[in-house]
Design a protein around this nucleic acid. Structure first.
Lengths: 353, 353
DNA sequence: CTGAAAGCGCTTACAG
DNA sequence: CTGAAAGCGCTTACAG
């Protein structure tokens, strides 16, 4: 009768089955599962009993076709090897689950264009999209938003045209870099170096800009600069160049903890330097390993929990009203002074920025 | 006319719109997007032109309702703080994407029961489920499989009843532990300790069993044992207990690299021990940080790429034919001798196991 | 409070 | 090769 393919995947239990068992209509079953719908309590009870007996749960795919709400949030994430991202993803997934949303994960390339794959994700009709990867173009983000699909950039901002047209949540990259720059200058360093990430990444650019501004305020400037590009290989090479320089740096500020840790390994192992006696190192993020005694890394801690909370807040607002104006949220973190740097904590921060 | 709610989310472009523009039926549009469907090349060309002009892409939610294939794979993952899991997830996501599948991510609790949340995921009708967390019960896995939903356990096996009813992919935990046990005994250690993970986790149990067997073959046994439970706090406490013992271990084999690294930090920082002169440390996984010079950790490398490939292979087989018998795949890795342990590499492996 | 009916956007026999 | 029609499993006006 039902000329099924040879698969034995048994036909799923539907609302009709429950209706038959409970002695009601399919509509009644649907209403019983809809909070606030008008059903007699006795009817709902009968339906729920039947549903429990049959193991019925409404099919969310079918529901989303009619409600135009999938309950899924597309998340694009590139560099899962940088500890801070799994930490964010974990938090995001748990907090979204608490609100009844699920994550459709989209692995973005580390470099290059991710837009085609991104378009594929949209075919699943996510209720919103979180972009925590640099490889999805700002242009696409702007386009999504124009089409009424909420987009939140997490730990990045949009550069270029349309910059203010899409929402973002970031740590205080500029302020953090600035605070570090000021402290470094005040601590008496003379040859500060910046270990940059990818040059098109807002995180790296903003941290560098803040760092340079902070140094400049105290009459210092970046002595050396090299690109680690947020990956291990380039970071190692960059550190080799910096430390092989005829006039090597006395401190290195890395655009991420992940790079700072690789930098420390190179300094210690390949150049026999003591940290912080011979070289001070500072990172950014407060990745879990930064606190491990072996690294004991001075770093500007990003407020991950707050960032995720803000992301979800924006998400919910924009889902509720797609016309709500985009917002750029910048959340202050705090500097954590650890043993990898000779720095005093006397500085009182820089509220001015 | 179309009494939309106040949201301005503009009506999506559908196959009807494309049909109207291309001058054909909605069926023709659908066929044009279905590889191998019978459409005249000229018709398909007209449709594709119109689709491109309108920016149309078939709605996968609607498609999956009728095809009963969602193209989504549910992935339950618990401990994203253990580096090996993000690495696996990244690989899994990229390899699945290459086959046209997307990941619906489900953050499993680190301990306790994840079954209710798991049931929620199933409402999205995933084509299969990958469980890489210990908190989803084997009972649920068996149940899914009975219902025709393919389930693959990744980096864990099913314990208890129904053990052979669900597919799994693991590294050679037993063989790896065994190889380490034999080498440790041959290297002349006298007081080996085992730093265990969660006692209900198959990974920890199998690695321990192998280790004990290897030691026993050479007339040695585990001198001390403590539970780190795969988290930092318990691991630190466990190491304090082991190293404070009146007769402390001369080597520690940890059930994961993540624990081994915490153990190394405690040994060095809190007890002033030199590694490996005063204490040898061995881990399991070959997490990225294990190779970093600071840790330079001897470890049994899990073949992550192979494990992911095998998982996808099983997935595809079981999706194609849900009646195909479950398989348990165990993939050999290899021991990587690094500086954290005094071990010789003369041992020739243990093919017998 | 309830059921019959329309419809979400597709795929797929079915009959030309 | 093509179009009209049924139907995937739901939600939601609509009329009782």
């Amino acid at each position: 009768m039902s000329g099924k393919r040879r698969e034995t995947r048994r036909r799923a239990i539907t609302a009709h089955d429950v209706a038959a068992m409970a002695g009601g209509s399919q509509s009644a079953v649907s209403r019983s599962f809809t909070p606030g719908a008008s059903v007699a309590p006795t009817t709902r009870a009968r339906v729920m009993d039947a549903a429990a007996a049959l193991g019925y749960r409404p099919n969310l795919i079918a529901r989303s076709l009619i409600t135009r709400r999938s309950g899924m949030i597309g998340v694009a994430m590139g560099n899962l090897h940088n500890q801070i991202y799994p930490v964010m993803l974990d938090r995001l997934a748990r907090d979204l689950a608490a609100q009844g949303y699920s994550i459709l994960l989209f692995p973005a390339p580390l470099d290059g264009e991710a837009d085609p794959e991104m378009a594929q994700i949209m075919r699943y009709q996510p209720d919103a999209v979180v972009l925590a990867a640099t490889s999805v173009s700002s242009a696409l983000a702007v386009e999504c938003r124009a089409a009424g699909l909420p987009v939140i950039l997490l730990n990045r901002t949009s550069l270029g045209p349309g910059i203010a047209q899409v929402s973002s949540v970031t740590g205080a990259n500029m302020a953090g870099g600035h605070e570090i720059g000021v402290l470094v200058a005040e601590a008496g360093f003379h040859r500060p170096a910046f270990l940059a990430g990818l040059d098109h990444a807002s995180t790296s650019l903003e941290r560098e800009a803040g760092f340079r501004a902070g140094l400049a305020e105290r009459g210092l400037s970046v002595h050396l600069r090299a690109n680690g590009n947020f990956n291990e290989r380039d970071t190692r090479a960059a550190m080799f160049r910096l430390l092989s320089h005829r006039d090597p740096p006395d401190m290195v500020f890395a655009a991420s903890d992940q790079m700072a840790m690789v930098a420390m390994d190179v300094a210690r192992t390949e150049f026999g330097l003591r940290v912080p006696q011979d070289l001070s190192l500072i990172g950014f993020d407060d990745a879990p390993a930064a606190a491990w005694p072996t690294y004991n890394l001075t770093t500007y801690a990003q407020p991950v929990a707050d960032m995720v909370a803000a992301t979800i807040g924006l998400l919910m607002d924009e889902i509720a009203d797609p016309t709500s104006p985009p917002r750029q949220i910048v959340l202050r973190g705090h500097l954590i002074l650890r043993g990898s740097s000779r720095l005093s904590s006397t500085h009182d921060g820089c509220e001015a920025l």
